[in-house]
Design a protein around this nucleic acid. Sequence first.
DNA 1: CTGAAAGCGCTAACAC
DNA 2: GTGTTAGCGCTTTCAG
Lengths: 343, 343
Amino acid sequence: MASSHEERRITLEDVAREANVSTASVSRVVNNKGYVSEEVRNRVMAALVRTGYVINRQARGLASGKSQVIGLVVPELETSYFGEIIRGIDEELVAVGYDLMLYTTHHRKQRESAHVATLTAGLADGLLLVLPQDPGAYLESFRRRRFPYVLIDHGGIDETGPSVGATNLQGALDGTDYLIQLGHRRIGFITGKMHMGCAVDRLAGYRQALEAAGIPYDPELVLEGDFHQPLGYQQACRLLSLSHRPTAIFASNDAMGFGVMEAVRDSGLRIGHDISILGFDNVPAASMVHPPLTTVRQPLTEMGRAATRMLLQRIAAPDTPVERIDLPTELVVRESCRMIAGP
Amino acid sequence: MASSHEERRITLEDVAREANVSTASVSRVVNNKGYVSEEVRNRVMAALVRTGYVINRQARGLASGKSQVIGLVVPELETSYFGEIIRGIDEELVAVGYDLMLYTTHHRKQRESAHVATLTAGLADGLLLVLPQDPGAYLESFRRRRFPYVLIDHGGIDETGPSVGATNLQGALDGTDYLIQLGHRRIGFITGKMHMGCAVDRLAGYRQALEAAGIPYDPELVLEGDFHQPLGYQQACRLLSLSHRPTAIFASNDAMGFGVMEAVRDSGLRIGHDISILGFDNVPAASMVHPPLTTVRQPLTEMGRAATRMLLQRIAAPDTPVERIDLPTELVVRESCRMIAGP
DNA sequence: CTGAAAGCGCTAACAC
DNA sequence: GTGTTAGCGCTTTCAG
């Protein structure tokens, strides 16, 4: 339909000439705003099709001050965690015709600030920041300039910005409680990186569940992890060599949970039978390992969607009161946890 | 350092005024091109810092005709496959100061064309297309307009464009050969979606290895899959119920390999001992399952990097002769394959 | 309802 | 070396 001989780029002006109207009119029908008579609209439509016109978003952005682009800043892309969130964002965005610009900071704070700077200087209409490392560096500036942004899974660092997260505390509480229901009383816990809010919350959930059940908190059973498999393995080994071994281990995320599985296997114990293992996140691999890992699902895709909707709302009305949403986690029972064995 | 009272956006003109020079001079130092005296350069530098100037990339893009953005079009984000590729792209891009715009087509051809259209209309300087669905729709137009692009893991559909892929045939050949070395002669094979080039190549590799070893090709052992776990499971079940059961199953990707593992387990057989399983891709989960899956690694990150370098080269010199690179695959031996059990 | 014209912020000749 | 001045392609008053 389009095309025929497109050497030079077709501009609004070309279309206007073709339709015998002004560029203003063409702009009006392209953007479907402002008054245009049926007649002119039809002529323009026809010309649009005939010429195969495609809008130049840069030019429009410059002229209108709106880029129809939102920027996404993530610390890394190594885990499927981010892919899931991006999916949610993407789903919301296509629906409204926004484009997505992706930046990876690779955990470099400086890079984070640099990206944020370009993004906010006309490139994007709003920003989504996943697991921000150093929000203090720019959040204040955003507020001053009323630049729309939303934090995803903020580390609890910023207490006031608009954000969406998950009910990490409740999730860990539910998970621990499930283990307790199964009869476990000595439950090992491997934390995440403790400078992150979600890690702190998960530990808190574990403690609360214990307390509610009247089980004394034993610091020996709580080891610090880093959300990565190798340390999960190591800490699990330490837990397993305790004189009074735990009967269940709760890892603060699935990756570490896989490490725990490995350690349990290496020690000759049977997963589920001899020792229960619980993860957190519900990454795709959780259902692929054997036995399938029981875990606490974190609604990543939904988080991405919710954050995007919130951002879009704030772009439309920057003074919308700040909201903070925590989406519910959910226990996904599979086969790595069992009723405690024995007497 | 920067900021102090940024209500209005700071423009080149502000900086020029501040430094008592023309906007042209400021532009020269900002872009570090053209002649500027030491003195002016210093004055401008100071003013830049004092004002906290950040370039508006839209304006620059419009004026220069170069956006310093490259567009990436992927069919989906569900699997870590794409995350790995994106990592590679991202690594190359930050090094040269380009930004990345991400588009997901969700396998909708129409959406693919639409994205491609906006992207090429000024938004991006070049395009990276992963697993393109319907390249015929726009490739011709790219060539006519000399718009730079590179295909990643092209489906063999387009025989002439610049592209990077992996040695799928050789990889499958190596994998099959490994199985043969282990003593297997009845090797089941589950293909990918056969309309994709990589699936065709992998099957071809399997057949070649068989032939080279003088093992007759048995169509009964080759079942069509779709690269997803459920069908891997189903087809494995069919393979296992064959009267003359295979002693090894080669799945065209890891996801299906996991399905095969499940099926083998469900049938009461032991993975490795009773039946060997080989995957393809080497996704992260491959090392997390139990037993760890032996597989053929596809160098996704490197593919992303190579494609990006190629694209950058073509942006710089659009008439660079078309290149097609196939990066080497590599057998990753883990524990799901064993020497065939004795007669 | 439609058109003319003034920019959006920057770059790139082209003078000086 | 440095400044002037056209635009880049579009939106958006503001007349008419």
